[in-house]
């Protein structure tokens, strides 16, 4: 309680230094941001491809166990990231079933973990989007002589805004997640000479994992900088999602 003045100063000083780190594109901060975007971006692109295929298969066809599959997908939408991290770790560790691939503590391992986390969300939300397309769209496409594939493509086209929202939701989850990538990525930075200066350059350290380690080590400006970038990213994602939703309504 000793002096709220000094604690405010501490906070402001941290924020000012953080903004400075971002504005002058500090190589460490930039590399961490790059790894985050690369890992979450690739994971979500792969997830989206799988999810759209899966959502189409479920929405456009009847088969045994369909309801069970839907329930499984809905349940996995809320998988705890740390648990996913542990399972991926157990598979990738040197003693694990695919340990020989030597993927543990690489960006590839992080992509796998985030792929598993994002796919159910994108699938689940996409199914809802597809099934909310009015029946008459399906029927019209069919009566116009479309094959099953034509009908499906037409419906998917109508549902595109919902599917984009689904992908954004998956991306939002991926960039906010820390438990899985911390376990399988290892939070590693390399020391490299960049332009003659020794620099920490992220290998598997992301915005979220960096915030945890920088805070614990008392590097508050760095932690705040990563926090700001992460907030801007989620804001951006939500902004697009809102814009898409507005368009789909209007």
């Amino acid at each position: 309680m000793s002096g709220s003045n000094s604690s405010l100063e501490f906070l402001f000083a941290g924020i000012i230094q953080a903004v400075d780190l971002i504005v002058r594109m500090d190589p460490y901060v930039a590399s961490v941001t790059k790894v985050q975007l690369m890992v979450s971006g690739v994971a979500v692109i792969l997830s989206a491809i799988t999810a759209i295929a899966l959502a189409s298969a479920i929405s456009f066809s009847e088969f045994r166990g369909k309801e069970l599959l839907r329930t499984a997908i809905n349940t996995s939408m809320g998988l705890p990231p740390v648990a996913v991290g542990l399972v991926v770790f157990l598979f990738l560790t040197r003693r694990g079933p695919i340990g020989f691939l030597d993927l543990i503590y690489t960006p590839a391992a992080m992509i796998i973990a985030q792929y598993i986390l994002a796919t159910p969300i994108i699938t689940g939300v996409s199914i809802t989007a597809i099934e909310s397309i009015p029946r008459k769209v399906w029927d019209t496409a069919y009566t116009l002589g479309g094959t099953k594939l034509d009908v499906s493509l037409q419906v998917l086209k109508e549902a595109r805004l919902g599917i984009i929202t689904a992908i954004l939701a998956g991306f939002g989850r991926a960039i906010a997640e820390v438990g899985a990538i911390l376990t399988v990525g290892g939070n590693i930075v390399h020391q490299l000479y960049l332009g003659g200066v020794l620099q920490d350059v992220s290998y598997t350290r992301t915005l979220t994992t960096a915030i945890t380690v920088e805070t614990r080590q008392g590097n508050i400006p760095e932690a705040i900088a990563f926090g700001i970038i992460l907030l801007i990213l989620s804001f951006f994602v939500n902004f697009i999602a809102m814009w898409v939703r507005k368009r789909s309504v209007g």
């Binding site: 020391q191 920490d200 350290r205």
Partner: peptide, 19 residues
């Protein structure tokens, strides 16, 4: 020490030994 052979984990002894 510099290069991709030098990995800095930023975490505790246990995490570093695991890596």
């Amino acid at each position: 020490p510099s290069g991709t052979w030098y990995n800095s984990v930023g975490k505790g002894m246990g995490d570093t030994l695991t890596a």
